[in-house]
Design a protein around this nucleic acid. Structure first.
Ligand SMILES: [Mn+2]
Ligand SMILES: [Mn+2]
Ligand SMILES: [Mn+2]
Ligand SMILES: [Mn+2]
Lengths: 218, 218
DNA sequence: TTTTATTTTTAGCTTAGACTAAAAATAAAA
DNA sequence: TTTTATTTTTAGTCTAAGCTAAAAATAAAA
């Protein structure tokens, strides 16, 4: 069993590794955990001893297979709880992350398996992120960022990259949610801004908006 | 916000105070928390500074009104989660306590209010214990221990005092659960043992069994 | 290739919450 | 009312997880 702090480090490192592809730096971990690099060094050395990650001084860390599975399980719990909060307790999708941050650390295999079943074995969380199975396998769907679409292309919103309350509330205001069809009417190459169509409405969005929305095309 | 350790101490002290009536001793707390008396002294001194309890050296502790409310809220969360686990996730009543021990420390007012509503504002948990309201008020029903009943009296099981897996499984084996009607056919004054009737069955029970079952008479 | 800047690590401190062993206070027995 | 036993507190350690400041390594710039 891993401590709350350990689980949070493992999860953070997993996410950073997904983004970066390569080994994760001490500073990157410190930033994402909102802690100091020296604290990170301490922890990664401890996790390296436990064979949860491989660590080469000054070179960064990489999760081992064991570490990857631990991370996937924490993520699985986080996302299943988010589904519970939204589907069953009728929370809004921008209110659930903080609560799930706590619930993801409740230790009980049986609990999470029953919760999964109770929720109807969902494949995605309320933000469109995939829920791994009990062995830590993600099924990844081919999705791209809205910002990658060209003029006249269209697709369906399948997730968000950014999950801050501000961003999610912006999307709500614009009536964009998982499943919403979006068409690119125009695109400005200078700043990456776009004119898009959502339902009957047409409006302008900045690149920052567009590069945080996942789209699945035909 | 209180730490996990603080919440557990507060809850323990609350329960001990219910049983004992008077001030709670250091040793009693240590035993119920499975820790050492010296650790308890440290913690109660800290809680006393925070005005959660009153502490007189060598004399024991007593929760303040603030402490009582904190305790009631932790207990409220514990019991609501137990209802969730049994009613929604179909856990058996002897499997839920440990998981609820973790869930009770998830901090979110909104979560617990919505959970309460989702569960239909239950008044009792799966073991028959009352669930306090958000302000920490318990509605207490007049119940007595089965061991207090005399020959030929009968009543309905409304709760258990002991919640160990062993005890709950014994009750299951004997087909006793919340709502079961029980009649005392005979009682041995020497050792407090009884012959009782449950449904069509008549059998012998020891005093230890009888003094852990709550009964409501007519 | 030096010099400078950045990143990472180490050393040493802090806090919460546990522990052991010894001292002090209280309760029970003689 | 002494003496003895029990309970409680204090003093001093320990570990997990954080921090700051300084040293060491690496990367970037001159
Ligand atoms: Mn989340
Ligand atoms: Mn999510
Ligand atoms: Mn319980
Ligand atoms: Mn209960």
């Amino acid at each position: 069993m891993y401590s709350l702090a350990e689980e949070n480090y493992i999860k953070s490192i997993y996410h950073l590794q997904q983004e970066a592809g390569k080994e994760v730096s001490t500073n990157a971990i410190a930033e994402s955990m909102e802690t100091k690099p020296s604290s990170v060094t301490d922890m990664v050395q401890k996790l390296a001893e436990k064979k949860i990650l491989s660590y080469r001084k000054y070179k960064g860390v990489q999760l081992t297979e064991e570490g990857r599975i631990i991370a996937a399980n924490v993520i699985r719990k986080h996302r299943l709880w988010e589904v519970f909060l939204v589907d069953k307790l009728k929370f809004h999708w921008d209110e659930v992350h903080e609560i799930a941050e706590q619930l993801e650390h409740v230790h009980s295999e049986e609990l999470i398996n029953r919760l999964d079943k109770f929720l109807g074995n969902p494949a995605f969380d309320p933000h469109g992120d995939p829920i791994p199975d009990a062995k830590g396998n993600f099924k990844n769907t081919e999705k791209k960022l809205l910002s990658e679409l060209k003029k006249k292309q269209s697709g369906v919103c399948v997730g968000v990259k950014e999950t801050s309350t501000e961003y999610l509330q912006y999307l709500d205001k614009k009536k964009i949610t998982i499943g919403t069809k979006i068409s690119v009417l125009g695109k400005e190459f200078f700043d990456g801004s776009m004119i898009i169509q959502v339902g009957r409405d047409q409006f302008f969005i900045s690149q920052k908006i567009a590069e945080n929305l996942y789209i699945q095309t035909a």
